[in-house]
């Protein structure tokens, strides 16, 4: 802002909807109701209508986006209580393999395997990672980054649960409409469920643990137990995505622990803006179609996600969603200076 032109400057004003607390609004007109409701309704309707429009390949991309979205939401949930996971594929892989083995060896249908895999994957993740929650954050990141890679190598080396060939010819979903809508609805339920949960007292405690765990401990709350609960929830959500994709592909293999499932959710959450869930959802809705359309690039895609990730962490730390939210809640006018 130099020189003679600098006689105008931007003035920002918050829109005046009086809010006593986060959840109580004083609404006086239809315009204000619309103002509050539209940002919530528009994405819901869009997502519910999209499966009707998108056919074939792009329909599948929508399902992918929802599943990656679930992983990103699960990441964001963990991050909101201070657990930074670099291995969402761990949750994904657990769910995928639980569903896959049940379906392969016992020929169970998705209606049975999905719930079992969701709960079982959540329990496995929580049990396996529960010792780490007592340690500093970097341990959690290291362990989650490493476990899926080690598990992948173990499956490859030992030939357990299908080895490097994987388990194929699994029971498919009966109806593509049902499966597509299941993906979309689960995604939406998780998105709004998490957003609600984190603003409830339960979520307040989780966020407090991230900010100052000692203060929370002095309030007689067992922070480790809370973190394990959070791990279970996040693990279950990730496992659902894994189990769903297993039946969707009718195949489960080592790729369930692949890096894609770890890096893309983090990239999505970082791009969209961590801590809001909507950001993670938005990020995955942007990144997944983008990466599908760049499928020709092959392995370079992952490098691309990494680029997006680094760029958004360094240059736009607040994320797209926070930016949009701020713009939505503010008037901007130019006022004359001096």
């Amino acid at each position: 802002m130099t020189g003679i032109d600098a006689t105008y400057r931007k003035k920002r004003l918050d829109r005046g909807i009086k809010v006593r607390s986060d959840s109580v609004f004083a609404i006086s007109s239809y315009r204000e109701i619309l103002y509050l409701v539209l940002p919530r309704v528009v994405p819901v309707i869009t997502l519910l209508v999209l499966p009707l429009i998108l056919k074939g390949y792009w329909g599948k991309v929508l399902v992918f986006a929802c599943m990656y979205g679930l992983l990103a939401l699960s990441w964001d949930f963990l991050a909101s209580c201070g657990l930074f996971s670099l291995g969402q594929s761990l949750f994904f892989g657990f769910g995928a393999y639980v569903a896959g083995t049940l379906s392969y060896y016992l020929h169970l249908t998705p209606a049975i395997t999905l719930p079992i895999a969701t709960l079982g994957g959540g329990l496995l993740s929580a049990a396996l990672l529960s010792p780490v929650v007592r340690l500093r954050g970097v341990y959690f990141a290291m362990v989650t980054l490493m476990l899926p890679m080690l598990l992948m190598k173990m499956i490859e080396a030992t030939g357990l649960v299908g080895g490097s060939h994987g388990l194929s010819a699994l029971v498919p979903f009966h109806n593509e409409w049902i499966s597509t809508y299941m993906a979309v609805v689960t995604f939406l339920v998780c998105l709004f469920g998490f957003r609600r949960l984190i603003n409830e007292d339960y979520g307040l405690v989780l966020k407090a643990i991230r900010d100052d765990d000692r203060a929370v401990m002095s309030a007689a709350i067992n922070i480790y137990w809370r973190k394990i609960q959070a791990l279970f929830i996040a693990g279950a959500v990730g496992s659902f995505a894994g189990a769903f994709m297993t039946h969707h592909y009718q195949f489960v293999g080592m790729s369930a622990f692949a890096l894609d499932y770890s890096i893309l959710p983090v990239a999505a959450a970082a791009l969209g803006g961590p801590g809001t869930f909507a950001g993670a959802a938005l990020g995955s809705m942007i990144l997944v179609p983008l990466s599908e359309s760049l499928r020709a690039l092959g392995g370079l895609r992952i490098a691309l996600y990494c680029g997006v990730l680094i760029g958004s962490v360094i240059l736009l730390p607040e994320g797209i969603f926070h930016y949009m939210e701020r713009k939505y809640h503010q008037f901007e006018t130019f006022v004359k200076v001096g």
């Binding site: 991050a79 930074f84 670099l86 954050g137 970097v138 990141a141 980054l145 890096l259 890096i263 983090v266 990239a267 970082a270 961590p274 092959g298 392995g299 370079l300 992952i302 490098a303 996600y305 990494c306 680029g307 990730l309 680094i310 962490v313 360094i314 730390p317």
Partner: peptide
């Protein structure tokens, strides 16, 4: 430099940079 001290960002950036290097080499 710009994200020093933010544990989450440090983790993400080193992790992503490492993978980017490896994937570029593979490519």
């Amino acid at each position: 430099l710009r994200i020093r001290g933010i544990a989450l960002s440090e983790l993400i950036v080193t992790f992503a940079a490492g993978i980017a290097i490896l994937e570029l080499l593979t490519w």
